[in-house]
Every structure is written in structure tokens, then in C-alpha cells.
């Protein structure tokens, strides 16, 4: 989708000599419209393909969610276009704008689906579990059907993703772009080979810090949440 927006922006910049800002905005709008058609067809298609479970398709759900999806899509596309535009024009990256946007789009898709929405299956679809108690598989399928007020269904589970998953996805993508570019900006390889190797070393140090951070979190979680099962082998030996 970002590629769509970028292509349109490229056309506008080159053909109509519009200002880049306007072109990027317009490209993002078109991309949002295309995104909306994808959202609508997949929502209706999946529901219709599960006819045997007798779930009706709610048109009000589509009407109220599609503009929101378009809005988020617009924001995402526009931000990625700005990043790509800056990389091409200011930092002098050799890849064309459309291709950079394509690559960042794939990357943000990977990050988003691996960080932001991991909670969608673990949130309110499982009723009442104590925080930190792990996820018992037998809770699965214990679907919450009624919310505090009115109906509750799968669409509302995105609430958590929007409040916590979305921002951390943004942080993750920002960290990727920032750390990836920062090391070559501080240690500019154009100033000589040694500087280029410094940038590589800086990157490796960043990765090592992240590994240690992950290990610290793991240790903390283990001590806070505790083991979920009794250690049978120790009992046997005792």
C-alpha cells in the first residue's frame, strides 16, 4: 500500500511538478481508498465463507470501521512516504522512492503483525484470567459475547491493540529506522573505510545491548510470574 502511495506521489512530483508535501498527502489518500476495498472484501468474504457457523454480516460494522481503517492507513502511508522521501532526497539513498516505500511497507507489516497484534488472541476473548498467570489453552474459545454495555465481538478486541500494541509498533518501527540510519549518519562511511567499520561496530553493540535487555526481562518475568507447573522430577527425588 505504501508503494501505491509512493508511486502516485512520484507521478505527481514528476509530472505535475506539485509540491512534495501535497503529492505525498494525495498519494496517501489514494492508498487509503485502496486499503479500504481490501478491508471490505476480506471482512465480507471471510464471513460469507463461514456460512455454516451462521454469523451474519453486520453492515453497520463495515460502515463504521472502514473510515477508521482508512484513517489509520492514511497516517501509516503518509509517515512511511515522508521517511522514504527524506531518505531519497536528503540522505541520498540510491533506491527510487517507490521501492524504498515498498521495502519499508513490508518491514512495518512484519513489525506490526509480530508486535502490535500479538495481544489480539490473548485479550478479552479469554475470560477472567489473572495477570501473569500464563495462557491456559483451555481458556481458548471461551469467547466473550457481551461487553460492559452492549455486544462485544472480535472487532472490539482491537481495543488493546490500539492502546498498547499500536504505540509499541510505532516505537519498534521508529527504532529500526532510527538506529539503522543513525549509525551511518554518525560514522559516515563516505569519509573513509575506518568510519564505515565503526558504524558496523556500533550496530553490533546496539544488538548486544538488546540481547542483554531481553535476557533481563526474561529473568524478571520468571521471578515475578513464577513457574506454572510443579517440578515433578524434584518431587520424585525428594
Amino acid at each position: 500500500m505504501c508503494s501505491v502511495g509512493a508511486a502516485i506521489a512520484t507521478v505527481l512530483i514528476s509530472e505535475f511538478t506539485l509540491s512534495p508535501l501535497f503529492a505525498l498527502v494525495f498519494g496517501a489518500i489514494i492508498a487509503a481508498c485502496v486499503h479500504a476495498t481490501f478491508a471490505v472484501t476480506s471482512t465480507m468474504g471471510r464471513c460469507a465463507s463461514q456460512k455454516r457457523f451462521k454469523q451474519p454480516i453486520y453492515l453497520d460494522m463495515i460502515r463504521s470501521h472502514t473510515p477508521v481503517i482508512m484513517g489509520y492507513s492514511f497516517i501509516t502511508t503518509f509517515c512511511i512516504l515522508v521517511v522514504s522521501y527524506l531518505m531519497t532526497v536528503v540522505l541520498g539513498h540510491p533506491f527510487p522512492l517507490t521501492m524504498l516505500a515498498f521495502i519499508w511497507g513490508i518491514t512495518v507489516g512484519a513489525i506490526g503483525s509480530s508486535t502490535g497484534d500479538v495481544h489480539y488472541g490473548a485479550e478479552r476473548e479469554f475470560q477472567q484470567f489473572e495477570f501473569g498467570s500464563g495462557l491456559n489453552a483451555s481458556n481458548s474459545g471461551n469467547i466473550v459475547r457481551y461487553a460492559e454495555s452492549g455486544l462485544r465481538n472480535g472487532y472490539d478486541n482491537s481495543w488493546f491493540c490500539a492502546k498498547f500494541g499500536g504505540p509499541v509498533t510505532g516505537i519498534a518501527f521508529g527504532m529500526t529506522v532510527f538506529l539503522g540510519s543513525w549509525i551511518t549518519t554518525v560514522f559516515d562511511p563516505a569519509r573513509g573505510l575506518a568510519q564505515g567499520w565503526y558504524s558496523v561496530i556500533a550496530g553490533v553493540i546496539i544488538v548486544l545491548i538488546l540481547i542483554i535487555w531481553n535476557w533481563k526481562i526474561e529473568v524478571k518475568a520468571r521471578s515475578d510470574f513464577g513457574p506454572y507447573k510443579e517440578d515433578k522430577s524434584e518431587e520424585a527425588s525428594a
Partner: peptide, 13 residues
């Protein structure tokens, strides 16, 4: 044609 029902809004069955 294929869906169980296409409705504006309503309760689950």
C-alpha cells in the same frame, strides 16, 4: 447469495 445473512445491525443468533 452466500452469506448467512446480511443485516444492518442486530444481535448474534
Amino acid at each position: 447469495r452466500d452469506a448467512h445473512a446480511v443485516v444492518g445491525t442486530g444481535l448474534l443468533p
